[in-house]
Lab assay of single mutants.
Amino acid sequence: GLEHMADEEKLPPGWEKRMSRSSGRVYYFNHITNASQWERPSG
């Protein structure tokens, strides 16, 4: 619920959580730099 939404908002600017269609794993994508990574971004 609300706790999940608050957790999402802690991601650094530009980052969003996405799911890989090929593997079904969650990864993180930065739409500003077009960077993507499996680890949760910090800072």
Rank of each mutant, 00 (worst) to 15 (best):
G1R: 12
G1F: 11
G1I: 12
G1L: 13
G1Y: 11
G1D: 11
G1P: 11
G1V: 11
G1E: 13
L2I: 13
L2N: 14
L2R: 08
L2E: 07
E3V: 14
E3H: 12
E3A: 13
E3D: 11
E3N: 10
E3F: 05
E3Y: 04
H4V: 12
H4T: 13
H4M: 14
M5S: 11
M5Q: 13
M5I: 14
M5G: 10
A6I: 13
A6W: 09
A6T: 12
A6F: 12
A6K: 11
A6S: 13
D7N: 10
D7G: 11
D7M: 10
D7F: 10
E8A: 10
E8M: 08
E8V: 09
E9G: 08
E9M: 07
E9Q: 09
E9K: 07
K10Q: 12
K10R: 11
L11S: 01
L11F: 02
L11V: 08
P12W: 02
P12N: 00
P12L: 03
P12D: 02
P12E: 02
P13K: 07
P13A: 09
P13M: 08
P13S: 06
P13N: 08
P13G: 05
G14L: 02
G14I: 01
G14S: 03
G14V: 01
G14E: 05
W15D: 01
W15I: 00
W15A: 00
W15G: 00
W15H: 01
E16D: 03
E16V: 09
E16L: 04
E16K: 04
K17A: 07
K17F: 04
K17D: 01
K17T: 06
K17G: 02
R18P: 00
M19T: 15
M19Q: 12
M19Y: 15
M19R: 14
M19S: 08
M19C: 14
R21D: 15
R21K: 15
R21M: 15
R21C: 15
R21E: 15
S22N: 12
S22C: 11
S22P: 15
S22F: 14
S23N: 12
S23Y: 07
S23G: 07
S23I: 04
S23L: 06
S23W: 07
G24W: 04
G24P: 03
G24F: 04
G24V: 03
G24E: 04
R25W: 04
R25P: 02
R25G: 03
V26K: 03
V26L: 07
V26A: 07
V26P: 09
Y27L: 03
Y27T: 02
Y27P: 00
Y27C: 03
Y28A: 00
Y28D: 00
Y28V: 00
Y28K: 00
F29V: 05
F29N: 00
F29T: 03
N30T: 00
N30C: 01
N30H: 05
N30R: 01
N30K: 00
N30M: 02
N30P: 00
H31T: 15
H31M: 09
H31G: 05
H31A: 12
H31L: 13
I32L: 12
I32N: 08
I32A: 06
I32R: 09
I32F: 12
T33F: 06
T33S: 06
T33V: 03
T33R: 03
T33H: 04
N34K: 15
N34W: 09
N34R: 14
N34V: 03
N34G: 15
A35V: 15
S36A: 13
S36L: 13
S36N: 05
Q37K: 03
Q37V: 05
Q37D: 02
Q37C: 05
Q37A: 04
Q37P: 00
Q37F: 03
Q37I: 04
Q37L: 04
W38T: 06
W38N: 04
W38A: 05
W38E: 05
W38K: 05
E39P: 05
E39D: 09
E39M: 09
E39T: 09
E39V: 07
E39S: 08
E39K: 08
R40C: 01
R40H: 10
R40M: 07
R40E: 04
P41Q: 00
P41D: 00
P41V: 01
P41H: 00
S42Q: 10
S42P: 07
S42W: 09
S42F: 09
S42T: 14
G43W: 15
G43R: 09
G43I: 13
G43F: 15
